[in-house]
Computed example of a mutant assay.
Amino acid sequence: MPFYTASQPLAAPRWRTLQADEGDCRLSLALEGRPLISVRLAAGEPLVVHLEQLCPERPEQALWAACYWLLSRDPACQRLAWRLPQAVPQAVASGLLLPGAQPGEYLCERTLFWQLPQPWLGQLPAGVYPQQMQLSNGKRHPRRAPKPRGEVYRRFDVRLGAWVSLRTLEVDQDLERFNRWQNNPRVLQFWQEGGTLAQHREYLEKLDADPHTLTLIGCFDDQPFAYFEAYWAKEDRIAPFYPADDYDRGIHMLVGEEAHRGPHKVASWLSALVHYLFLDDPRTQRVVAEPRADNGKMIGYMHDQCFHCEKEFDFPHKRAALMILGRERFFDRCKLA
């Protein structure tokens, strides 16, 4: 299974291979042929994990890798009960492990595990951007952090057997692709943004200069297939239609490549997109969307990912469904693998 790690905390991340030897209630993991961790497993609820060997140079990473492997192979598993001969303070401080009732007992909760920002995010988090309220077009909202550039999220989807990643859109690199996608009759039916290269350059450059919207390209195995807009709801046109919180994020979604349509692909990229937005700022408590109310297929896909339809309402240009997914609901019912 592919695995993400950095050789040093501040080093550029590199992709490596995590290998497993599993059988007879035992699991051993190696990173590029180097032993990382060995555990003994005892079936039950929760699954009990007895530590036998641990790489002394990177103990927290070794524990993380074992948690990742065990939670990814079984999406129904909600927690792991670790038995450790001695504490690993970094794992407790990060939230990877929770102290149990007895000495040497620790829990790994799926709900907490998938909220850890690394290794999914493309950049090491620099901390929460400080809050300062400001007015934009009559709307009071927090000042937004500078927008990232490059790859912002990457995860290996075990069920697809493929990497799903998100990178920021670069106008010169992606303009022709965006133009082709927007002029696709299927996309045009719902987006209504068909036009020339010049019109689409103007559209994308305007969004690039807008601090409340982040334009993203979705990729499977580094091949672009989709365009997403992630926006801060408080200063967006959606804000008057529901009580938007300061850090709610909204999404617009477009799958441009026909080969990457279908419910199994939507489950992968939609969960990745929402996961990224919740990790990007821990203050984000809701992700919202406003697809056309007659786009039953997309609304159905969103229901499958635990969104609920709050109501229907009228924009000037469409009848929309207000779809909402809360942070607690997303991680409590986490389908990531």
Results as ranks from 00 to 15, higher is better:
Trp114Phe: 10
Val187Phe: 00
Arg144Phe: 06
Gln90Gly: 06
Asp172Val: 08
Lys206Ser: 12
Val88Gln: 14
Glu202Asn: 13
Cys108Arg: 07
Gly194Lys: 03
Leu166Glu: 04
Leu116Trp: 02
Ala145Gly: 05
Thr196Ser: 15
Gln189Cys: 12
Cys219Trp: 03
Leu175Lys: 05
Cys219Phe: 06
Trp114Glu: 00
Ser94Ala: 06
Leu121Arg: 04
Arg186Pro: 14
Arg159Ile: 08
Leu97Lys: 00
Gly122Leu: 13
Glu151Ser: 10
Leu121Ala: 06
Leu169Trp: 01
Trp120His: 04
Leu135Cys: 09
Gly104Asn: 15
Val128Glu: 14
Cys108Tyr: 13
Gly127Lys: 07
Pro125Trp: 00
Val128Trp: 09
Leu207Val: 03
Trp191Asn: 08
Glu109Trp: 13
Pro146Gln: 14
Asn184Ile: 08
Gln123Thr: 01
Gly104Ala: 11
Ala209Leu: 10
Pro146Asp: 11
Thr168Asn: 01
Asp208His: 08
Val92Ala: 07
Glu202Lys: 10
Trp82Gly: 03
Gln189Pro: 06
Ala81Leu: 06
Gly194Val: 02
Leu80Pro: 02
Thr215Lys: 00
His200Lys: 13
Val128Ser: 10
Gln118Glu: 13
Gln102Lys: 01
Gln132Leu: 11
Leu216Gly: 00
Leu216Asn: 01
Trp191Pro: 05
Arg149Tyr: 07
Arg154Pro: 05
Leu96Lys: 09
Asp174Trp: 06
Met133Ala: 15
His212Lys: 10
Asn184Tyr: 13
Asn184His: 14
Pro125Leu: 05
Thr196Gln: 03
Gly95Asn: 10
Ala209Asp: 06
Ile217Leu: 08
Pro99Gly: 03
Gly218Thr: 05
Ser165Tyr: 02
Trp114Thr: 09
Gln102Glu: 14
Lys139Asn: 10
Thr213Gly: 04
Leu112Gly: 04
Ala81Tyr: 11
Trp114Ile: 01
Gln173His: 15
Tyr203Glu: 02
Leu112Lys: 11
Asp210His: 09
Leu214Trp: 00
Gln189Leu: 15
Leu207Phe: 10
Ala198Trp: 00
Val92Tyr: 07
Arg154Tyr: 03
Gly122Ile: 08
Pro211Asn: 09
Glu151Asp: 01
Lys139Cys: 12
Pro99Tyr: 07
Gly218Trp: 02
Tyr153Gln: 07
Thr168Ala: 01
Leu160Glu: 06
Arg180Ser: 11
Pro130Ile: 07
Met133Leu: 14
His212Gly: 06
Ala162Phe: 01
Phe113Glu: 02
Glu109Met: 15
Arg180Lys: 09
Gly161Ile: 06
Gln86Arg: 10
Asn137Met: 11
Trp114Tyr: 15
Thr213Met: 12
Tyr203Pro: 06
Pro211Val: 01
Ala209Ile: 09
Glu109Ser: 12
Ser136His: 12
Arg149Gly: 12
Arg154Leu: 02
Gln115Gly: 10
Ile217Gln: 00
Pro185Asp: 11
Thr168Phe: 07
Asn137Trp: 11
Phe156His: 08
Ala209His: 05
Glu105Gly: 07
Thr111Glu: 07
Gly104Gln: 13
Gln102Trp: 05
Arg140Tyr: 00
Gly100Tyr: 06
Gln118Met: 12
